[in-house]
Design a protein around this nucleic acid. Structure first.
Lengths: 92, 92
DNA sequence: GGTTTATATTATTATATAAATATATTAATT
DNA sequence: AATTAATATATTTATATAATAATATAAACC
């Protein structure tokens, strides 16, 4: 067994491993949304939502498309859905 | 959509989201091992391996059983295998 | 009981991440 | 062009995590 370079995988896990980001991603996995949607339905300050979305976007986990005044966000990394699904499993 | 408490899930992801810990877990998922095994096959300093195993143990992700001079480690959280499996998928 | 092997702990230092608040940008509307 | 709505960025302060090195414990064997 060789030491593998799990740098990117570790980075993905640490990036999505934040309570607010998991909430945001759960919303986005159901359907694309803009900052106001997320902010409204999760009751998190707008700046906080934008900050976390910026982090997710920089890591290539979500993408943003401007549509007039709004910016539509969607999940681009397909592993995220699987990981969140796996999290729901029982521990033992 | 309500704000869910993803504290524990986030904690799990952040804990396993470290290159060395992903390597250690990958080894342990193949078969249980003691510190020396891991240290030997991954070529990581002993103290580093012990430290990371301690972190994983404190979070309940692995367990330790002493067997004479050795301590046998094994993965107890079944979600870990699924998550590592999910990580192997293509991004797009 | 001393030595070796296996593992654990502690301390130090550096770096990364967090939340909160305030302010800035961008596009549509009047 | 001024206003409003939507989103982004910057700053500050606090806290968490990392790697490394040194040292400590615990069991087995002579």
């Amino acid at each position: 067994m060789e030491l593998k370079d799990f740098a990117k995988e570790a980075d993905l896990l640490r990036t999505i491993g934040h309570p607010i980001r998991l909430n945001i991603l759960t919303v986005l996995l159901e359907e694309d949304a803009c900052v106001k949607n997320i902010w409204g339905c999760l009751d998190i300050p707008q700046a906080t939502v934008s900050q976390h979305l910026a982090i997710l976007k920089n890591k290539g986990i979500v993408m943003a498309q401007r549509e007039g005044v709004m910016v539509r966000y969607s999940v681009t990394d397909h592993r995220v859905g699987k990981i969140i699904e796996a999290l729901k499993g029982k521990v033992q």
